[in-house]
């Protein structure tokens, strides 16, 4: 296959459930060897799109090809070309890790002489070689997910689909899984297509499609997406949000947005004022000097994909509690580092 040709090509793909348009005329291409991410809140249409590309769900209208095969008329060829790791585990817990892999290899027509070699190799990749003869029911959540990724590789797919691959996993396992993903791309030249609603995870992708209400609202490299937001993000926690907002507008010409924030990466819960400013760090001292209304706390940071999502849709992707906590930690570390280097 010509490397310049996209490995996945989607055109006006639509899926309707009753009166709900889950995916609405979505079009995009994914290049070979790319790590392509679908980012969006729960219910945005990520999984529905993946299910259509995996031939589990028939599109209501539109077309898509994968590895040159049509997803509607060449199901078996498409299936043979892909590996899938679903959100929920799909392993047989009563069988051993090795048996799960062998079963998969048989279903995907891997020649008998190859099965043993391949299962040993993929287990090594995901670091489960010593557990190959243990029943899957004895595995932790992270190990199961790694085993599923290993299984998805058994038949040398051209595209590996990962639906929320690190959902509910601890930070170390998440990092480890990302290392595997990058390694796979480098060693086997496979394309990785993943969905996530973790912002920090999406940064690992070459390109991201931000999806909301069944539509792709933006598709670009993570850095380019972030440049679309107007500079740094300043978050203030004022005593009287409305008074401060008015003062900022009158004296500095800044449009602040009042946010009722949860305890997440922008600070503790409460009423916040969020500003976008081209060079926030130099603006901040002037702001603090000039403002007469009282401020309790201030943060300045570079835009994240969360800000991109916010500026595109007017809403935040609500991260799950665990992820939120981790992001807070990361931000704190970042702030500390910044403080030290200044």
């Amino acid at each position: 296959m010509n490397p310049a040709e996209p490995i996945i090509s989607v055109e006006d793909l639509t899926r309707v459930f009753g009166s709900l348009i889950a995916v609405d005329r979505v079009s995009f291409d994914v290049a070979g060897r790319e790590v392509f991410g679908f980012l969006g809140p729960n219910g945005a249409g990520k999984t529905t799109t993946i299910n259509m590309l995996c031939t589990l769900l028939k599109p209501t209208s539109g077309h898509a090809t994968l590895n040159g095969y049509d997803i509607s008329s060449q199901q078996d060829q498409v299936r043979q070309s892909i590996g899938i790791v679903f959100q929920d585990p799909t392993l047989d817990e009563q069988l051993t890790a090795r048996e799960n892999l062998q079963f998969h290899a048989m279903l995907y027509n891997v020649p008998a002489s190859e099965r043993e070699i391949r299962s040993r190799r993929v287990l090594e990749i995901v670091g489960l070689a010593e557990r190959s003869r243990d029943k899957v029911e004895t595995f932790s959540g992270g190990m199961k997910r790694r085993l599923e990724i290993a299984r998805g590789l058994m038949h040398y797919p051209r595209v590996l689909f990962l639906d929320e691959p690190t959902l509910g996993l601890d930070p170390q396992t998440r990092t480890a899984i990302w290392e595997y993903v990058h390694e796979l791309r480098q060693q086997y030249g496979i394309t990785v297509f993943l969905t996530t609603h973790y912002m920090d995870e999406a940064e690992n992708c070459d390109r991201i499609a931000i999806i909301d209400h069944g539509n792709i609202v933006a598709l670009d490299k993570p850095d380019d997406l972030k440049h679309r937001v107007g500079g740094d993000i300043i978050t203030l926690r004022p005593v009287d949000a409305e008074a401060t907002r008015r003062e900022l507008k009158d004296r500095f010409g800044l449009n602040g947005a009042i946010l009722e924030a949860h305890a997440d990466n922008s600070g503790p819960a409460g009423t916040h004022l969020r500003l976008e400013a081209p060079s926030g760090r130099t603006l901040l001292p002037q702001l603090l000097k000039g403002l007469s209304t009282e401020i309790l706390s201030v943060t300045v940071r570079e835009p994240t994909l969360d800000d991109v999502f916010l500026s595109l849709t007017g809403r935040q992707i609500r991260e799950e509690a665990a992820a939120g906590k981790m992001a807070v930690m990361k931000d704190r570390i970042r702030i500390r580092r910044r403080a030290r280097s200044h």
């Binding site: 031939t55 589990l56 199901q75 078996d76 679903f86 392993l91 047989d92």
Partner: peptide
């Protein structure tokens, strides 16, 4: 319920 049915359903069979 344990998800394994999905593994069979997405296989090229």
């Amino acid at each position: 319920e344990f998800g394994f049915l999905k593994e069979m359903l997405v296989a090229p069979v």
